[in-house]
């Protein structure tokens, strides 16, 4: 049985490796995660340390990405904003995944009235302008990391719930489950050998696309001044700060924007690659 599992993983891995963009994206995602975790170790300066003798310095060997209006090192601030974004991105995704798996699985398995009620709720939340809702939540809950985590995940779990539900229903109704049951497979065997492998793909893909989406919401909030509190850096705040002095000190705008764009792109390429890998129709 372990033999079989290994072959499936090898097949998927082989498919992923053929997609160059996905491999590059995946490596960059790993690199970013490392940077985010090691930010306190690798950041050359403290992100709050201002130095009024070195304000608005262009990129140099001392300050690779220059310094801002208070003389704070941009590279350090970018590393910590990557950390903030990752905390929100992964954290909110974990909340979404938990809620989505739980409610989606209940709706899918139970069916009937439970399903109808849960899905109506999902429909209504889905119709909510989600970013507006996040903004209101932040206005009310404050600017702590936890408040933003809640604000980001408050509406986005419905997408996951829908995916999980439809996966559960598809797998539940399929003939091979009936056949396995008829041949005497136990519930646990069915779940491990059929349900999980068959419904994993769309969920993994949704998670990969969900993380950058959460990062986007986080930095969008801080772009309009509703993100994490001031000394903690965030990409959105760095971008809006750089926007104010872009003609005099363009590097303050260019570095945050380009690194953020690169981060989002690497997640997207990885997600796109994974989608092709799990879509058995597209590649054999």
């Amino acid at each position: 049985m372990t033999e079989k599992k290994r072959t499936m993983t090898t097949i998927l891995w082989g498919r992923l490796r053929r997609n160059k963009a996905a491999v590059v994206g995946g490596c960059f995602v790993l690199f970013l995660i490392l940077c985010a975790i090691l930010a306190p170790v690798i950041a050359p300066y403290s992100y709050t340390q201002s130095n009024f003798l070195a304000t608005y310095q262009g990129p140099s060997w001392q300050h690779w990405f220059g310094t801002d209006e208070l003389g704070r090192d941009m590279l350090s601030r970018l590393l910590y904003s990557l950390q903030t974004a990752s905390l929100i991105g992964f954290g909110a995704e974990a909340v979404e995944l938990t809620l989505g798996l739980f409610l989606g699985a209940i709706a899918g398995y139970a069916g009937g009235l439970t399903d109808t009620i849960l899905m109506r709720i999902v429909d209504i939340v889905y119709g909510f302008p989600s970013l507006l809702f996040s903004i209101i939540m932040v206005v009310l809950l404050g600017h702590s990391l936890f408040a933003i985590l809640i604000a980001v995940s408050a509406t986005s779990w419905v997408g996951m719930a829908r995916i999980v539900r439809s996966q559960v229903i598809t797998v539940k109704q399929s003939d091979y489950i009936q056949a396995a049951r008829g041949m005497g497979a136990t519930g646990w065997q069915i779940i491990r050998r059929y349900v999980i492998p068959n419904s994993l793909g769309p969920i993994v893909v949704a998670v990969t696309f969900g993380i950058p989406a959460n990062m986007m919401v986080e930095s969008a909030l801080s772009l309009i001044g509703l993100g994490v509190e001031a000394p903690t850096p965030s990409w959105g705040a760095l971008i809006s700060n750089g926007d104010q002095a872009m003609f005099s000190f363009p590097y303050l705008l260019i570095f945050p924007a380009f690194t953020f764009a690169l981060t989002l792109l690497s997640f997207t390429f990885l997600g796109d690659g994974l989608r092709n890998v799990f879509d058995s129709k597209s590649t054999q």
Binding site: A21, P212, M216, A220, L223, G236, I239, D243, M246, F247, P250, L253, I254, A257, F258, F260, A261, L264, L265, F267, T268, F269, D272
Partner: peptide
């Protein structure tokens, strides 16, 4: 399609900054 994927992946405010950098700066 590669360019389109890049366009889809970025939110409008990041696209705005990239456009500003290229066309204005």
């Amino acid at each position: 399609m590669f360019i389109a994927m890049v366009g889809t992946a970025l939110p409008s405010y990041v696209v705005a900054v990239l456009l500003i950098v290229v066309f204005a700066l």
